[in-house]
Structure formats: C-alpha cells, structure tokens
Design a protein around this nucleic acid. Structure first.
Lengths: 192, 192
DNA sequence: ACGAAGTTTCAATTTGTTCTGAAATCGAAG
DNA sequence: CTTCGATTTCAGAACAAATTGAAACTTCGT
C-alpha cells in the first residue's frame, strides 16, 4: 500500500531501489512498526515516518521522506511536528543547507521512555483529573442509597488508585535521562 | 452512534438519566473511560460497555446495555464478544432466566493484567515474529555494503531485544493469577 | 527589500472504521 | 420436532480519521 513494487529503477543515488534486499528489509520494518502503531492509536503515517527515520539512522529532510514513503508534503509536515512534539524525533539544521533535517532517537529504551512520557501527559493525567471530578459528583449526592453510593465510590477509588500508582511509577521511569525504564526492566527481570 | 441529527453531544443520556446524581457520576466515568480507550485504539463502544459493566458491578443482560447506552443489539453483541475474548468480561447465566448476563472483572490489577495479556498476544508477539523475519531478510543480503548492513542489523537487534525483554517480563506479570502486576508495581515503587 | 527555497496550514476529499437493523441462526422447553 | 425468545451475522449506512494539494506564510541570501 505504501511502496510501489517494481518501478523503473532510477539512477539517482537517493532513489529507492525496490530490489535492494537492505531496503526491502527496511520496508518490512517500516510496515511492521506501522502496524503496531496503528493498533495502539498512532496514525499509520506517523509510525511510518518514525520507523523510516529510526531505521535509516541518519538525518533526512522532508523531501527524502516524501519520496521514500510516497506521501504528500502536507502529511510529512504534520507528521514530523507530531513526532517532534513527542520528543522522539529532533529537528536539525545542517550547515550550509537551508532545509531542515530530522533524526529519530536511536536508543530504544530512551525512545520507549519518551513515548511513555508523551502518552502519560496526554492521556493518563487528564483521566486522573476526570476521575477526581467524577468522584466529587458522586460525593455530593445526598439522595442516593448510602450502600450503593459507598460501593460506587469504592469502585472509582480502586480504579483511581491503581492508575495513580502507575502514573507515579512512570514519573520515576522517565526522570532518569531515559535509562529508568531500562533499569526497571532489568531489576524486575532479576527479582520476579 | 447517536440517533439524533447533528448537534448536542449525547442528548439521550441526559434525557434518560438527568435526575440521579449517582447515574450521572456513572455516565461521567463511562465517558472518560471511553475517551481513554479510544485514544489507545479500543473502539469507543467497546470501552463504553466495559465501563458500564465495571461501574455497575453487577451482571447486566444485552437489553440492559442497549437501553442504558442507546446502542443497537448488533453492536452490543459484537462488543460483548470482544470483551469476553479479552477475558475482562465474563458471561453468566442467571437462575431461572433464559438470557445471558455479563459481568466485568472487578479487581483493577487483575483487569490490567488481562488487558496486557490480550494486547501482548495480539500485537507484541506478532511484531516479534515479524522482526525476526525482517532480520533474516537482511541477513541473506550478500550484495550490500558490509558496514551499512551491520549498522542496520544492529538497529533491528536493539529494537528486537528491548521488545523481547518486555515480552518476557509481561509473561511473569500475567502468570501470577493477576497479582503479578500489583506485586511488580509495589516492588518498583519501593526500589526506584 | 525582494525573490527563491522551504515549511505550514486547512478545506475538500479520500480512505477506513464502526454501527445499525433485519434476517439467519441457535437452543431450550414443551 | 416445533416454537419462541435470545443471539449472532453481515451488507450497507453513517461516521470519523487521515491525506492531499495549493495557497499563505516564513526565512535566508543578496
């Protein structure tokens, strides 16, 4: 869906040669990473651009990405902004070039930490705030059956407590220059 | 989703349930849980049904759900099957009733474990298998520049290793009757 | 200050997903 | 084995999300 299988090979050195096994392996990686992304609510094209930058391991400009993934200028621009907001892709100006270049975080644990951080901010924190409001609404209810009210609040609390604990935990992960997740996983692997 | 034309968000909700503060609190919970679900790739109505069953804390039948959430029979059926597949909702027959009833897992840590288990199976494992294939494709490449090939394989490996470690870790979490996640979080909280 | 190169924005469109509703199927009770 | 209530299926309708493309904007060099 993303790449044409067997185009006329272009002699241009930046062109994609579908026949090159190394590029085919890169394409496969991009496709799988995009599949994963899309089942986790990350727009496919965002995941594709990230995968490309990660697997290339070198700065690319907007045009490189457009050609390689066959997507529009607008899409690339939007997508790169998203990735930059999440902190997993960084902009860099190249000396003597007017274009901007983009590069993906190469350390996988750091990458995962940045993803956790972004999602925590965007989703977990608002949910925690909303749950507090929800508890307040029920708390103000004088009219309900006391037993039902108590049970309801207990359910809200158990959910709220668990999520808050995950939230605090993720603060620690992401507080150690990206190495927290790595440390935590190693620790648990030996302890559990 | 809604039967009404185009404007106010979920007007039927208010019409049917406006009076009771406890129900309003439940509705708020359902809405927030659904928001979270939809940003994690869970269909909104699946998250809504789950939230309803969780927050009610008692078995409901298909018709109860249809009326409460104002969705169709077909949607409820599909949704309940999905939730049952993930293991976070269980079917139960009620004595003297021909209908099936459905009940949500009430222990939050167990719930989270079940979710992790389902997503691991559905997404992480296939990705790991795909990454192995991807490495094999590149490995077979005799024609490429050896340095580029080596760098490429190193990137694939770092990703593969990290994800495999997360995979193995999640095996431990979910192996302890749902308490593994709880234990792990408590452990890390004290150690980190 | 101007023009060229590069980037962003956004309305329209395309693409993909979810929901509905009625028909087919299932299965327990008589 | 027939009936009747409950459940599942599925084609099409309704909806939501992502992408495009072109205009507007920004930035740099001269």
């Amino acid at each position: 869906m993303s790449l044409s299988p067997a185009n006329a090979p272009r002699p241009d050195e930046d062109a994609v040669l579908a026949g090159d096994p190394l590029d085919r392996s890169k394409d496969a990686f991009i496709a799988h990473w995009a599949d994963m992304g899309s089942s986790w609510g990350v727009p496919r094209s965002v995941a594709e651009v990230h995968a490309l930058l990660f697997i290339e391991g070198r700065p690319l400009c907007a045009e490189d990405i457009m050609e390689r993934l066959q997507v529009s200028r607008g899409s690339v621009s939007t997508t790169l902004r998203t990735l930059a907001d999440w902190g997993i892709v960084t902009r860099s100006r190249q000396r003597g070039e007017r274009k901007e270049f983009f590069e993906a975080e190469q350390d996988v644990w750091n990458l995962l930490s940045l993803i956790v951080r972004a999602r925590k901010r965007r989703e977990l924190e608002p949910l925690l705030a909303a749950l507090e409001d929800t508890k307040a609404v029920a708390d103000d209810d004088a009219s309900a059956d006391p037993a039902a009210l108590k049970a309801h609040l207990a359910r809200l609390d158990s959910m709220h407590d668990a999520l808050r604990r995950l939230d605090r935990l993720s603060d620690r992960f992401i507080g150690r220059g990206g190495k927290g997740l790595d440390v935590a996983v190693r620790l648990l692997s030996s302890l559990l």
